[in-house]
Design a protein around this nucleic acid. Structure first.
Ligand SMILES: [Zn+2]
Ligand SMILES: [Zn+2]
Ligand SMILES: [Zn+2]
Ligand SMILES: [Zn+2]
Lengths: 162, 162
DNA sequence: TATCTATTGTTATAGAATAACATCGAATGA
DNA sequence: TCATTCGATGTTATTCTATAACAATAGATA
């Protein structure tokens, strides 16, 4: 897995957009996007791949801010509740959501080589799982759908590398 | 979440069946289902709901066997490799597979109240995720599909409990 | 038997998440 | 303006999950 890169201009733009969207969403809902929460969201968006809580904590400490695990986990809980980020259970990592506002579970393609993750929102997958659950009288509250594999870039890299 | 129950006769029967199937599968593949591995598989099947690694370790120590986390994690790794158990990423727990022999990812309905989990093998879900991945030139290696919710029993229990 | 390899034992540590309590700060009302 | 209140953050300690590294043992092989 490649080391975390400095944010490129595309990422910085995505982060700016995500942050301004988050401001709007939070204002509409009457919840506070505090400095800390905003900074955690920014850190996540500045990174090219999902980040672990302790990696986020390292960046916060690098900022000069004091903090401990609860600091970052509380911010992450808030962002999860507001649907601004997703948690990847198979990685214990967090990534930004590009369609906040409407809560959803999403599905994720995770590259095992470069660590990058792509969000899908396939209605067939979600609906089929709901149907299967209903057939068993099972009440669905949340879905975790994560596909581990290799992205195109990493497939090509490994072909040329061999 | 209810406390772990003693295995009922249905569970004991399921465990016996799973263990004899495991013996066959391992013999066919020329891998060794040792005492330890067999016992860990048995512990998992004797339990009504998915078990964590440290809960399994407690049972092993209760057996009188000495052991530490690597003991149980190595056995779990073996059982996972042979497709005899599944790992639930959203719970950090392990459960037996009722269709071993053919490797598969499966989908899981997990009850947040009683902790029980049901395995599905819905081809539509799997195929749709493959199609979505292919459209993005993403090579699929494994799928994690877990649905959190409430089973029928727990829905009724909560209705009567209120 | 002697040797080799897979398995298990053992100690220590890394990594992820939360409990419990103290402190701070923004908003509200007197 | 000041006091109060409640949400947010700081702080310490602990629990839970998982692995690294090396030693000892047991099964298979020659
Ligand atoms: Zn999303
Ligand atoms: Zn990649
Ligand atoms: Zn299965
Ligand atoms: Zn239940």
């Amino acid at each position: 897995m490649q080391p975390p890169l400095e944010p490129c201009s595309r990422q910085l733009a995505a982060a700016r957009q995500a942050l301004s969207q988050a401001e709007i969403v939070c204002q509409q809902r009457g919840v506070r996007l505090t400095q800390l929460r905003r900074r955690v969201l920014e850190i996540i968006w500045h990174h090219s791949s999902p980040l672990g809580a302790y990696a986020i904590l390292d960046v916060l400490r690098n900022d000069g801010r004091q903090g401990a695990p609860p600091t970052v986990y509380r911010a992450l809980d808030f962002l999860l509740e507001q649907g601004l980020i997703h948690r990847l259970a198979s990685l214990n990592m967090f990534m930004g959501c590009r369609q906040p506002g409407a809560h959803h579970s999403g599905q994720f393609l995770i590259c095992q080589d470069c660590g990058q993750a792509d969000e899908l929102n396939n209605q067939t997958v979600e609906a089929t799982l709901h149907t299967e659950a209903m057939a068993r009288h099972f009440e669905v509250l949340a879905q975790t759908v994560e596909v581990l594999g290799r992205c195109l870039d990493c497939q090509e890299a490994s072909r040329h590398g061999d």
